[in-house]
Write a protein that binds this DNA or RNA. Structure first.
Lengths: 133, 133
DNA sequence: TGACACCTTCTACAGTTGTAGTAGTCTGCC
DNA sequence: GGCAGACTACTACAACTGTAGAAGGTGTCA
């Protein structure tokens, strides 16, 4: 019944890499990713390159060669990655049920009044059967 | 902001172990955990024992000896573990902001009308100033 | 034509996680 | 007084993750 999420759950470093890729415009080079992450991580260029290639192996990125340099582009959208991670957490913590996770977040996490208002609006929209996305 | 003591993010197997411990009454023996998980995991007794001891090392469980047998009890509550995991995901995916994560869950995940109604109720309760910081 | 910059592939290695075997200890029982 | 059963401590080991160095190809510019 529960559809298998065949999307990989990203590791810590992989999230960093993918955030940099997603922030780019379509295809990015290893150098661009490296430069985007250098300040935050201090990683060596080859570290970034290794990780990018591992993500290609996993099907999370695809790569093409342009003038002897690899261009990487995401095969997994950020939204999908978030969904996979959230479902993974729900599976671990609540046997796969999303609702208790959302309950927890709303009850225990600090959300601004504006956040709350927007969430309420989203719930209301759904109740009215609006289509989006 | 993050003034709380750092709670560890549990791994896959650790969640299974901890779920079994939390489901127990206070303190549980390795044997009880093993028996609770045997059907689901097929793990050997020593696997469970090793994992429990690693969780003690990490401070997630504490242990006492009773009649030559270890009794484990949680030092981390389920709620805290969920919070740590959720914050970890928010950090990875959204730079630490919880709201986009909640947005995602409400927008993209299937929630029953009853779930939605209850979530709305929770938001309304909060809006009425029941618990404010 | 050679130095240089930049890129790639290959290899490495330690730490964590998942999973378990082996051997030793205690304890009640025949 | 030794044995079965339960339990513990110690050790192992492969996969995955984080991080990077070394070596080698290629285009460019003096």
């Amino acid at each position: 019944m529960a559809r298998r999420p065949d999307h990989p759950v990203l590791s810590e470093a992989e999230w960093k890499l993918m955030n940099a890729v997603w922030d780019g415009t379509g295809a990015v080079s290893a150098r661009e990713v490296w430069e985007a992450l250098r300040a935050e991580t201090g990683w060596a260029y080859t570290t970034v390159k290794t990780q990018l290639d591992r993500l290609v192996q996993k099907g999370v990125l695809s790569v093409t060669i342009d003038h002897h340099a690899s261009q990487y582009r995401p095969e997994l959208r950020r939204q999908r990655a978030v969904a996979a991670a959230a479902r993974d957490l729900a599976r671990r913590a609540f046997g796969g049920r999303m609702a208790p996770l959302v309950h927890h977040l709303i009850r225990a996490e600090r959300l601004s009044p504006r956040d709350r208002a927007e969430l309420r609006r989203m719930l209301d929209d759904d109740a009215e059967g609006k289509v989006r996305e």
